[in-house]
Amino acid sequence: MSQLSPRKRYEQQERRRSLLIATASLLSVCAALYYFVPKAPGWDAVKRSFFNWPILEKTFPTLLKAFLWDIAIFAWSLPLIMVLALAIALCRNVRKPALFPLRVFGALYTDIFRGVPIILLVYLIGFGVPGLGLSRPWNSPYLWGTVTLVLTYSAYVAEVLRSGIESVHKSQRAASESLGLSEADTMRYVILPQAIRRQVPAMMNFVIALQKDVALLSFIGPVELLRQANVYKSLMANFTPYVGAAIIFLCVTIPATRYADYLLAKQRSVRT
């Protein structure tokens, strides 16, 4: 302690002081909420409808089981999204004049699938395509629901990848060309590794959003977490099952968000 310079000592004091103030402020806000919210005249009714412990206890195990569907749909959708997004991003980046139609296709694709509300696509593809006369199991809502998610999300992720590709400086292309690399090899070995690494934090946002949007598939039949909560809500005329669903979602999204923040911070510190 004694070897600290006066300045260091002062800084340490300041740090302690601000930590103390932050803690006190946080605690007093929590205490005020804890004290005043239950004083509201309707609190008992709200508590009964939203924070009903016996109902949560009764429904939580089934909700957790229904969440397995969300995980499964998420798990098989994510790799497909990444592959298709990469393909679309590459389409938008082709330089050969003869391949210009690919560029048009890429642009149209991202415009359409980012512009149309995802819920419309869920219905259109989830009911519409099987309605054309496909037989089981090829008309499964899981299959066509996944197709919808992949189509929509790959449009968003493709744009992220494209901006990553464009962020790689021109000189890199020129340099690899002068080394004799083909255009495909330049993309594969020089541009993409940098582009993807740079865009990982931005893509994490879509990964988190996808975790929640998986629940949209419940519109076309699958009884996943949100639908199961919805069933309990109607059955018991109580919103507590939704709180249960929120807790489950948060257990996954909060760590994922923090991880994305961590990646962003790491990237920033590398750049500066």
Binding site: Y123, F127, P130, G131, G133, S135, R136, N139, I220, G221
Partner: peptide, 11 residues
């Protein structure tokens, strides 16, 4: 929606 699903032969 249930009617749509049975029309699409999903149920």
């Amino acid at each position: 929606d249930v009617v749509a699903a049975i029309t699409a032969n999903q149920i």
